[in-house]
Simulated assay, not measured.
Amino acid sequence: MCATKTIALISGANSGIGLAAASGLARNHGYHVIIGSRNADAGKKVAASLVADGYSASSVQLDISSDESITAATGWIEHEFGVLDVLINNAGIMLDTRRNGRSTRELFTESFSTNTTGAACLTEACLPLLRKSESPRVLFVSSRMGSVSETTNKSTMYYSLDYRAYDCSKAALNMLALNYARILEDVGAMVNVVCPGLVKTKLTDNHPYGTSPELGAQRVIELATASKGGPTATFTDKDGVIPW
Results as ranks from 00 to 15, higher is better:
Ser11Glu: 04
Glu68Asp: 09
Ser143Val: 10
Tyr159Ala: 10
Gly146Glu: 02
Glu214Tyr: 07
Ala42Cys: 05
Tyr166Cys: 13
Ala42Gly: 13
Ser56Arg: 09
Val193Leu: 07
Ala189Val: 05
Ala226Trp: 06
Ala189Pro: 01
Leu203Ile: 13
Asp63His: 00
Thr201Pro: 09
Glu78Met: 05
Glu78Trp: 00
Glu124Asn: 11
Met1Gln: 14
Glu150His: 05
Thr117Gly: 00
Ala40Trp: 02
Thr201Ser: 12
Tyr55Asn: 15
Met190Cys: 06
Arg219Thr: 13
Ala172Leu: 09
Ile88Tyr: 01
Lys44Pro: 02
Thr97Lys: 11
Gly146Tyr: 02
Tyr180Glu: 02
Leu173Ala: 02
Ala189Ser: 01
Gly230Gln: 04
Glu124Ala: 13
Ile77Phe: 00
Thr204Glu: 04
Val60Ala: 06
Pro196Val: 07
Ile35Arg: 04
Ala3Phe: 15
Thr114Tyr: 00
Asp239Trp: 04
Ala26Cys: 11
Asp186Gly: 07
Ile7Val: 13
Ala3Ser: 08
Ala57Glu: 01
Val83Trp: 04
Ala171Gln: 03
Ser58Trp: 06
Tyr159His: 13
Ala91Gly: 06
Asn174Leu: 05
Leu62Arg: 04
Tyr166Ala: 08
Ser149Ile: 11
Ile221Phe: 10
Leu130Ala: 03
Tyr180Cys: 06
Leu19Trp: 03
Thr71Gln: 02
Thr204Asn: 10
Ser142Lys: 00
Glu214Phe: 05
Asn174Tyr: 08
Met157Leu: 11
Glu110Thr: 10
Lys132Asp: 06
Ile7Thr: 02
Lys228Ser: 09
Ser135Thr: 08
Asn39Thr: 15
Gly75Ala: 08
Met175Phe: 14
Trp76Ser: 03
Asp162Trp: 12
Thr123Cys: 13
Ala72Cys: 03
Val193Tyr: 00
Pro243Asp: 12
Ser56Asn: 15
Ser49Cys: 08
Gly101Asn: 08
Gly18Asp: 05
Asp53Glu: 13
Tyr55Ala: 11
Thr204Phe: 03
His207Gly: 14
Thr204Cys: 15
Glu80Ser: 13
Thr204Val: 12
Met1Phe: 14
Asn115Lys: 05
